[in-house]
């Protein structure tokens, strides 16, 4: 990664222009040219430095219901419970965490009522209480990782 790659990563995490030739416009801002910028983005996507290029959507504002859930899973049951939880297509991510609450997953459904249905199913299947942590307020989410 050279200086231009760093500039692209640090300054193009937002604000990609809405115009006919956006790569040309962004390139002018960054001190390069359209072809170079396009080639750099392609290369950074190719080597995995970037995961995506394009609009970043707010899933909740697009509609649907989301919530964060946690389980306290006995160590001996962990793999079984992970499989039971992951089998639900509404489970978008699931992480093991080093804590008494050792399994954390996000549920995403089209309708709010489906959240309760999936939680009830997971409780019945696993025999564990699901702790639900819906977001009550969001404080400015804007991760800008520095390269």
């Amino acid at each position: 990664m050279d200086e231009l790659d760093r500039v692209i990563i640090n300054r193009l995490q937002g604000g990609f222009p809405l115009c006919t030739r956006p790569f040309a416009a962004a390139a002018a801002e960054l001190g390069t040219d359209e072809a170079t910028l396009m080639a750099r983005i392609e290369a950074l996507l190719g080597d995995g430095t970037l995961t995506r290029f394009g609009p970043l959507f707010d899933a909740e504002r697009l509609g649907g219901a989301f919530t964060l859930c946690a389980l306290r899973v006995p160590e001996a049951d962990f793999e079984r419970v992970a499989a039971q939880v992951n089998a639900h297509p509404e489970v978008a991510h699931n992480y093991e965490r080093a804590h008494e609450f050792n399994m954390w997953f996000v549920l995403g459904t089209r309708a709010p009522a489906d959240i309760a249905r999936v939680i009830a199913a997971i409780e019945a299947e696993t025999g564990l209480a699901v702790f639900e942590f819906p977001r009550e307020a969001e404080y400015f989410i804007e991760l800008r990782l520095a390269a």
Binding site: I9, G14, G15, T49, P55, L56, A146
Partner: peptide, 25 residues
């Protein structure tokens, strides 16, 4: 372009640009 501007304005689109991989950085 008008629809993207509208979705940016009401935050259905957070931003448009590159999305870095945490681990790669």
């Amino acid at each position: 372009l008008e629809r993207f501007a509208a979705m940016l304005a009401d935050r259905r689109v957070r931003r448009i640009g590159v999305v870095p991989n945490h681990y790669a950085l």
